[in-house]
């Protein structure tokens, strides 16, 4: 069960961040960048799909009694009652916010190009070290997804690092906007390294990643890029958390309202 929860933590991060980034499609500041950021969104979405498929396989293999305890969602409970198998779409479209395990950082609004770049940069740096370690997982499906994803994430990190530097060290206006965006998003970075029960159990089983270990690497990378970008880490050290335990910001409800609209309004149909 920890393996399933753990997989959902990673999948939900990918889905929700991919959703946020996809909101840019057609509205980017430069046509080339509109195309580039949409590519990133597609990568996150692709990762989410692989992870949800893995999670659905694990879920379908569970005994009926255990299935009932996992999600609050009435729509999923109905499927369990009918002994139906679930798939990637059921996990994305039929759970409510309290069943989602993504970190709060990923659900923060796009606001402007600066906020979007900073959010991506903090997450990409985390994701890079996370997937690097996850390649060693004894869960061979997770290890394979990590290996494939790492190629994409390496590009994401390069892209967001370059934009951090370009905008931080650009004009007075861009620097001020970027510092504001860093200050806002910084408070959501602590949660990336919080170890939930699933994180601890998976680490102990040789299938998960030691988040304390990658925090040091992450910090080093973030310091280096911020320095080159002439930006600084805010003095306020307060960190928000709760997403990994299913306690989300107000934003997630609206994301899910849009994301799940079709499946909720027209249930049980093939699209």
């Amino acid at each position: 069960m920890n393996q399933l929860t753990y997989t959902l933590q990673i999948a939900d991060n990918a889905l929700i961040l991919g959703h946020r980034i996809s909101e840019w499609c057609g509205h980017g500041p430069i046509l080339e960048q509109d195309i580039a950021i949409t590519n990133t969104s597609l990568d996150h979405l692709g990762q989410a799909r692989s992870l949800y498929q893995h999670a659905a396989d694990m879920f379908n293999a569970l005994p009926a009694e255990e299935k009932k305890t996992l999600f609050v969602s009435a729509a999923l409970q109905a499927k369990i009652a009918k002994d139906e198998k679930i798939d990637e779409d059921d996990l994305a479209y039929l759970r409510d916010g309290w069943d989602f395990r993504n970190v709060l950082l990923t659900e923060q609004p796009n606001k402007d190009w600066g906020y979007t770049v900073v959010r991506s940069f903090f997450y990409d740096a985390y994701n890079f070290y996370f997937y690097t370690e996850l390649q060693k997982s004894k869960d061979t499906v997770l290890a394979a997804i990590a290996e494939k994803s790492l190629k994409e994430v390496t590009y994401h990190l390069r892209w967001s690092s370059e934009w951090m530097i370009r905008l931080g060290d650009g004009t007075a206006e861009s620097k001020a906007r970027m510092q504001e965006a860093v200050n806002h998003n910084w408070a959501y970075t602590g949660e990336l390294f919080e170890m939930t029960t699933a994180d601890k159990e998976m680490l102990a089983a040789g299938m998960g990643v030691d988040l304390n270990a990658i925090k040091t690497q992450w910090q080093k990378r973030v310091d280096a890029v911020l320095e080159e970008a002439t930006l600084s880490i805010p003095a306020n050290a307060w960190m928000h958390s709760g997403g990994k335990e299913g306690r989300h910001s107000e934003h997630l409800g609206y994301i899910l309202t849009e994301l799940q609209f079709m499946q909720r309004a027209y249930p049980d149909m093939e699209w």
Partner: peptide, 18 residues
């Protein structure tokens, strides 16, 4: 894009608009 009815349709639509 944000309301596509399945993850596969969403990916195809995103790629198309891109």
């Amino acid at each position: 894009i944000t309301r596509a009815p399945s993850l596969r349709r969403k990916a195809v639509l995103l790629a198309k608009v891109q």
